[in-house]
Design a protein around this nucleic acid. Structure first.
Lengths: 344, 344
DNA sequence: GATTAGCACTCTTTTGTGCTGAGTGCTAAC
DNA sequence: GTTAGCACTCAGCACAAAAGAGTGCTAATC
């Protein structure tokens, strides 16, 4: 048996996938004999379909039903058969203008828009730095027992941390600490703050070694927080719209995984997506998340700055409308890139 | 017909509710005649149950099924029959110590613990001030085009906002702005910053009126953000465990409402809860949220500081284990109060 | 007068049966 | 190589019958 699909088989496979995506029902030979421009009788199609089944591209749920695409079939469709639909999305710009300050809110909004547009579940990860560097640190007294440390990281991410004081610090001491710490730490990331450096800083700020430790911890915290992949989802209940995912067990597992965002970070790490398009498609078990085995995931990468990427994507049933989804993501990817370029 | 329940009727109602909470099945007269210590035959129970039904405390889903509690029945149970179980929860303290800085993370963790402990959905709102006041404002130059405004609000909430600059500001100007704005704004909330004040500030910082406007906007934003009731949920998929909520329509609506947190804020506003215990129980349609009509909600109030409250609670099926839930919430409430007192 | 046993009745749930329609695989003819 | 024809398979549906749970009522009992 040839392992390569001749043109006719491709056309038939295309017809099967296309039809199944639309209807969600197994598709039979009669349907296809009408659907394609091949003008073949259903009997011929049946023969070809038997071949396709043997080759693993399609399968029948039971004897007297039509055929549905296998994961391999979807894969072939996505890689070789489908052509993207250019799909316009509402302009993100309008959404983004609202509040550019809270990255979190912004990401949520983009995610929501994606979910509403596609009717699938959307997912988006915050931009990820290898390891953020400290831009500067600012200490301000709040009251006798507390110090506010404003930590500005590369990429203009500001974090606030409160430092508890054993005893009050006078403004001179604070000024000094500010100076010492900034001199030493400027432009460094967690890895670069080593024991030697810490020793030096402490020796230059005698009497306050404890506070210095606390501050360093706060910085490490801030960087760690920002470096951890944060993932936001939207439209999680959309998956309930697709009957094949809607039995109690599957839906529960799925929604659980979506709520428990930890499991999704794996998915949103920068991966091996198509160099050219920045798009990656996971079909069924290809995704590195057990709970998603009956779903497909399409992700795209956005570039915030040189070396700073984030991802966003769509989670839906295997029979999602890949053409539309890929089109939508590409469109959004373009929009985001434009916006970030402009902003610089 | 007496509208008051004699002791025997109460016992029978108690038995019905108790049994139904456990099994989720309508309970029949035979079951009860064994269950209670009343030693009555099923026939007698039947007579009493007919009375209870007529009085509206229980109802039968159909002729040949047993009885289930009506909302009124639940209400009576909650108000008069049940006794709280003191339910120990994992010590929150351990969780809280981790990272006290990000309120958000903390609330999420408490919510998660609640959900895991109870097997219901949990919900928690951030502490709510009437309207936050500004404690101080600090402007720091980031680069030629950007100013970082650190806004410290009453209750030690720090917010960062970036201000775009039309042209660079020298450090002297920034110092001056800092001084002027802090002098005028200290201790005020959004309502108190009026046009007259704004005019004065602008006149005292000539040449920078635009920046002043931007900063004021940022402050207003920060206060608004913090004042909006923020609500976090956890264990949303737990509701799928209860068959009566698990038909596609109901579950979808419910999960939708839980994702769309706006609808929940109503629930989490400080309400008319029991003065003494701080606990409020909404049964079915008593909750001010349409989607929750088949659920019950139990909320508790925690006090962060004088006049500063937040709420947390449990959303579950009407037949939730009220005794356990109330016990759990009371326990947690105590723990939280202790922790916040300690912290002061 | 309250309680209980007994029984007919109701209604859901389960089980079983037969039918239908969609779709296949195979064979033989074109 | 393609197609028409036909027997066969199997899920899905409708319908009926049976089982089971529980009630309400009546008449007997304490």
């Amino acid at each position: 048996m040839d392992t390569v699909l001749d043109e006719r088989k491709q056309k038939i496979l295309y017809a099967v996938v296309k039809n199944y995506l639309e209807t969600g029902e197994p598709v039979g030979s009669r349907t296809i004999s009408k659907f394609t421009d091949l003008n073949l009788s259903s009997a011929t199609i049946r023969n070809e379909m038997a071949d396709l089944e043997e080759m693993g591209y399609i399968l029948s749920p039971h004897t007297s039903a039509g055929r549905i695409p296998s994961d391999k079939g979807y894969r072939f469709y996505v890689d070789s058969l489908m052509r993207d639909k250019v799909k316009e999305v509402d302009s993100v710009k309008d959404v983004l203008i609202e509040k550019t300050d809270r990255v979190e809110t912004l990401l949520q909004q983009v995610a929501k828009m994606l979910a509403v547009n596609t009717n699938y579940t959307s997912i988006i990860s915050a931009p990820q730095y290898r390891s953020r560097k400290l831009k500067f640190l600012q200490l301000t007294p709040v009251d006798d027992e507390k110090l506010l440390a404003v930590i500005l990281l590369e990429g203009n991410i500001a974090k606030n941390k409160f430092i508890s004081l054993a005893q009050p610090l006078d403004s001179e001491a604070i000024l000094k600490l500010n100076l010492v710490l900034n001199t030493f730490l400027n432009g460094l990331n967690t890895d670069e703050i080593n024991l030697g450096l810490i020793q030096k800083m402490k020796s230059q700020s005698e009497g306050y070694t404890e506070v210095v430790s606390d501050i360093l911890d706060a910085i490490a915290d801030a960087i760690a927080e920002e470096d951890s992949v944060r993932v936001y989802t939207s439209g999680t209940t959309n998956i309930l719209k697709y009957p094949e995912l809607n039995d109690t067990r599957t839906a529960g597992e799925l929604l659980g995984a979506l709520e428990e965002k930890d499991s999704l970070t794996e998915l949103m790490k920068k991966g091996t997506e198509d160099e050219e398009t920045g798009i990656q498609v996971y079909i069924g078990e290809e995704a590195p998340v057990e709970a998603l085995k009956d779903c497909s995931v399409v992700t795209a990468t956005y570039k915030l700055d040189e070396g700073v990427y984030g991802k966003f994507g769509i989670i839906g049933p295997k029979r999602m409308d890949y053409e539309r989804v890929v089109g939508t993501l590409k469109n959004l990817m373009g929009q985001l890139d434009d916006i970030f370029k402009e902003k610089k």
